[in-house]
């Protein structure tokens, strides 16, 4: 399971608190070092890790704390609080509205899994009886339209795209307009991969955004991403109003900590995770149960809603 390894390491570190006979600065520091190391090995952004460490440290005042029991509790809850802050931006996930068109735009770095995930999301809604369609506004990547077309055809999802039109803004607006007229409820727009270093690509994203006025912008992240994640995620958020995150490729070995840093940078919740290349390798993500599970606080709601 996602980040399970991280959760185990954090719990081990916390347990070292319970095993210590006296709790002093040294015990606290060594536990914090252990937690920070686990976070860094999972690719959580180093600045976030440092901040977490400082925040926990400053929440603890050894002089004022009375008994050993009280110390333990205070330290543990300070750690929990900071970890929750990492995963949970405290924003409610966007929900589509039945009976009206909901336009969803996918954005993200090259190869992160946008096109694959577009179809997964469309398929997810289609199975729940929403009238769903896909638009390919990637005119850059070789074979992009064929990829979306083959995926959509296999899943029997209506799609829109062009082999000849070179302007993604034109395709996106035409597609959205057409599907709105036909009363589609979930209209998903796939876009090219891009990165913050190339202004023209970011400008193009803004133009597509303005043209289709999406109800939800989803930022797609590869779970294996490292320290570059935060800067990229922040830049996407600054250009278009990213409101949700999907983390892909969690079927691999990656812990997904880098992607968690994207949550902090975009202040957006993770709504789904991708766990394979097939269309139903897709799971809804609920932040609260996830955090509880991560921190071993009991699996109350059940982690995953299939």
């Amino acid at each position: 399971m996602v980040l399970a390894d991280l959760g185990r390491k954090i719990n081990n570190a916390l347990r070292s608190l319970s095993n210590a006979t006296i709790i002093n600065e040294e015990v606290l520091q060594s536990m914090l070092s252990e937690i920070c190391r686990a976070l860094l090995e999972s690719d959580v952004n180093i600045r976030l890790v440092k901040k977490l460490r400082e925040n926990v440290r400053s929440a603890i005042d050894f002089d004022e704390m009375a008994s050993g029991l009280n110390k333990r509790k205070m330290i543990q809850s300070a750690v929990f609080r900071e970890l929750v802050k990492l995963v949970d931006p405290g924003v409610k996930a966007w929900q589509p509205t039945k009976g009206k068109p909901n336009v969803i735009m996918f954005v993200g770095l090259q190869g992160s899994g946008k096109t694959t995930t577009c179809t997964k999301l469309a398929y997810y809604y289609q199975r729940k009886n929403w009238k769903t369609c896909l638009i390919c506004a990637d005119t850059f990547r070789a074979g992009a339209f064929d990829q979306l077309k083959q995926n959509a055809t296999k899943a029997r999802i209506p799609f829109y795209g062009s082999y000849t039109e070179a302007d993604p803004v034109v395709i996106a607006s035409e597609g959205v307009e057409t599907f709105k007229e036909e009363n589609f409820e979930i209209i998903i727009v796939d876009t090219s991969g891009r990165h913050k270093q190339e202004d023209s690509l970011f400008e193009e994203m803004l133009q597509v955004y303005n043209a289709v006025a999406p109800d939800n912008v989803i930022f797609v992240m590869d779970a294996s991403i490292g320290q570059a994640c935060e800067g990229q995620a922040r830049a996407f958020k600054e250009k278009v109003d990213v409101a949700s995150v999907i983390v892909t490729k969690l079927d691999g070995h990656a812990k997904g900590g880098g992607a968690l840093s994207a949550v902090a940078a975009t202040q957006s919740p993770i709504i789904f995770i991708g766990t394979g290349e097939h269309i139903d390798d897709f799971e809804m993500f609920k932040t609260q149960p996830f955090v509880r599970k991560l921190l071993n606080m009991g699996d109350i709601e059940g982690l995953i809603d299939k």
């Binding site: 990547r141 070789a142 074979g143 064929d146 990829q147 979306l148 077309k149 083959q150 296999k154 290349e277």
Partner: peptide, 16 residues
């Protein structure tokens, strides 16, 4: 021979 569009992607590159 698995990922959708993989062959067409290479065909496009070949043509270019």
């Amino acid at each position: 021979t698995f990922r959708a569009g993989a062959v067409e992607q290479l065909r496009t590159h070949k043509t270019r």
